[in-house]
Design a protein around this nucleic acid. Structure first.
Lengths: 194, 194
DNA sequence: GTCGCTGATGGCACTGAGTGTCAATAGAGG
DNA sequence: CCTCTATTGACACTCAGTGCCATCAGCGAC
């Protein structure tokens, strides 16, 4: 029950922060302003989020593990392109399930350089996870063989491209359809024998 | 001649900063320490570099334009895979020309999360440049057609993979050969008709 | 009920990054 | 030698982030 309250407070902070950032931008929004809007103390804010950027980035926290878990759960014999498409699909589902919240966050991140940078750094960790999982699936050594790493990188490049186009379309485009088109491009490279 | 002096001071600051960061890490190295080592004032430091991170990132400044210029200079009929390989080759050349300096910077960036994030953000700008150039070369609309964007993303994924493996090999591996192997993976996707 | 323990919170002071302002200074040109 | 200009240094300030400690609420033991 203490955990429930913690998530409630975190959600309140997040909501206040996103609201303020949407109005006056991330950089010009101070932690003090967020803190006042959320009705907590400055010190408490940093107990919930390790930095101001974390408020936005934290919302993507589960995507990495979701993708990796889905990739692991795919049938062993499935070709890399199909397995990776389903893995990325897990992340895209979050955008489809809650379009309003997701779009707001994605747009904020994409037009705030420092947030964009943090997100890309996160993605690099996702890539490491996907690389390791792919290496196991394919029985390849990720140190000497560049294929798992490149395949994971291409899948995330497709994810990025879909997110960017979804963002600039203001949510009008279908994220899964954009992802399909991006995967159509990388497909020929994903299913090679190596 | 004022410009010459400016570059000289910048080089001195950079050298002092990299030396300190190599010893005690980027995060624990303060601007004050860099400033003392370089023999300048704190205020002057921020006139040369807009942030502490910029000292390291600035060293990659020309890579983006170099790649785009090289891509533009490639023969019009050349297939995307070949043209992009030469463009990325321009950036890799910097590592081959000055292996000691480059390796030190690359390793520092790759093992410092905040620097890694900034570098990836830079790369996103390079990608935009390559995307625009590719769109022109191929006569495709980068808004409705995902191919230019994905091709640029794949090329940079290859660049990244080569850099990472070069870094972990402590410079023992050949950067151009690593890039060749990475491009061999994405090749089948780069030369599709779309 | 009260004592004592634990965990969450708030307040305070501190370091470090980054910025604006102004005075001092050095160098080019008359 | 004087003047105009650009670079620098010094100071003060805002804001992010952290360590420390006092406070307070809940909760089990007695």
């Amino acid at each position: 029950m203490a955990e429930r309250k913690r998530q409630l407070v975190a959600a309140e902070i997040t909501e206040a922060a996103l609201q303020l950032c949407a109005v006056k931008g991330f950089d010009t929004t101070t932690v003090d302003e967020i803190v006042v809007a959320a009705g907590i103390s400055r010190r408490t804010f940093f107990r919930y989020f390790s930095s101001k950027e974390d408020v936005a980035i934290q919302l993507l926290a589960s995507l990495g593990t979701d993708m990796r878990d889905e990739l692991r759960a795919r049938p062993a014999g499935e070709p890399p392109a199909t397995a990776l498409r389903h893995a990325v699909g897990m992340a895209i589902d979050h955008c489809v399930d809650e379009p309003l919240k997701s779009l707001r966050v994605v747009q904020l991140i994409l037009r705030t350089p420092v947030l964009h940078a943090r997100m890309l750094e996160r993605q690099a960790q996702w890539r490491e996870g996907l690389t390791a999982e792919l290496a196991v699936r394919l029985g390849r050594d990720p140190v000497t063989d560049l294929f798992p790493e490149m395949a994971a990188g291409m899948a995330l490049a497709a994810f990025d491209a879909a997110m960017r186009h979804w963002s600039v379309s203001d949510g009008a485009a279908d994220p899964q359809e954009l992802t399909d088109r991006a995967f159509a491009v990388i497909g020929p490279a994903l299913d090679q024998a190596g």
